[in-house]
Design a protein around this nucleic acid. Sequence first.
RNA 1: CGGGGCGUAGCGUAGCCCGGUUAUCGCGCCAGCUUUGGGAGCUGGAGGCCGCAAGUUCGAAUCUUGCCGCCCCGACCA
Length: 491
Amino acid sequence: MSKEITSREKDYAQWYNDLVLKAGMAEYSAVRGCMIIKPYGYALWEKMRDQLDFMFKETGHSNAYFPLFIPKSFLSREAAHVEGFAKECAVVTHYRLKNDPDGKGIIVDPEARLEEELIVRPTSETIIWNTYKNWIQSYRDLPLLINQWANVVRWEMRTRLFLRTSEFLWQEGHTAHATAGEAIEETKRMLNVYATFAEEWMAMPVIKGVKSANERFAGAVDTYTIEALMQDGKALQSGTSHFLGQNFAKAFDVKFSDKDNKLDYVWATSWGASTRLIGALIMAHSDDDGLVLPPKLAPIQVVIVPVYKTGEEKEKLDKKIAEITENLKALKISYKYDDDDKRRPGWKFAEYEMKGVPVRMVLGTRDLENNVIEVTRRDTRKKESVSLDGIANVIKDLLDDIQSSIFNKAKEFRDTHITRVDSWKEFETLLDTKTGFLSAHWDGTTETEEKIKELTKATIRCIPLDNEHEQGKCILTGKPSTQRVLFARAY
RNA sequence: CGGGGCGUAGCGUAGCCCGGUUAUCGCGCCAGCUUUGGGAGCUGGAGGCCGCAAGUUCGAAUCUUGCCGCCCCGACCA
């Protein structure tokens, strides 16, 4: 093995880094905290993006694009919002460079200071609502359903590939509605889109819930979230959908006339998911030999490796493989026929395992003589010889099986890592031993939440939407509580 | 911003404490031959301002000072 991966058991964080780097997903860049998304990683992102984009359009949204730069004054219009983002904003102060008069190099031209500084968007609510003001006059203009695919910058103190970088790619939906009810409905609709995407495409089970006040988006009335559980027992927020109330409409004076010609502020939502999803996907399924990708998102679903000695043998294999790939193509299965003679089969096996290609097919001269092909699935490593007759359909079924199989495996792990806890001692212990979500009573106050965070590093991930109400006592303070919430250590 | 660590070939490293010919090894790279069913073998080859700058010295990868950069831990966060 020339590309060793640190085992999960030995060092989970290092395992994750090894995977990202060695599978060719991304690498560190010359800029601190920023990463280069490599072609294989970007191909995965494109598949995620395309599916999400399709789902957004299916639910009535249109794409648009707003500026990267936001006038500083915009950000301060909504008090909670500026409070939330002020500490991590990159600011543009000048618009020109010049040669250093004292010698070598180049300096910022002090003459070229901007009259109003520009913020590199950490999110686009402000510039968008400043625009919506001009787009919305009447209830006839509503609902306004816009999404944008963009990069944003949040100046993070500590970064991790995909999970937290200073610049990242995402989509942000921004909608305006005539009533609070419609906006809340939209917020939940998009949360469901994220949940469906996570479960059916990423094969990653999620818990839908609402955030506590403490964890809420800056400027939102309510923040809804999908929370996933990684293999190391830490939770990962994988998508958020916010009901913004009339906060931004008021801040940017966006009013509309209703049917009765009464003026009112519009109701807003925003929702986003980012390249962080790639980090989630990696940690949800992968193992010590590399990535395990769900067939529905894998850039390559099937890799085909020929094994031969002579050119004559190779020609026979080529011919058969052309037949097979024709049939795969007809079933819309993406494949790669890797007949690169500069790499040996064993090298290729290891490489595609590293890259998480769901199915590997190996056709050798011996197989051809017996009218079979060796088929190996990445998730379980199960290897078998399959008849070449009708092979494409077998592969199609196999891909479906892998998709549901890795979902079930992740769900099994998740379900067995939600633990009901009723004593503080047990709470503290389980966070270290069993990890995962702890379902516990909480008195509903921010003070208690922060105290728990301080003591254990666990935060309230969400209050599940389908929560049952029951009488209980807060895990820390013993004060009365009406429902359990999910605690976990998180990324 | 605090605490710790590290900068030697594309990558990973030895040498540094105790200064002394041509800077070590592995991977990768190039050429050729043999190979090809789990990261091939042999032979030959290319590749280094030892992070940068100054100092000490006959002589610095090695000692001193300053600077720069990165990584890890914490505070902040999707």
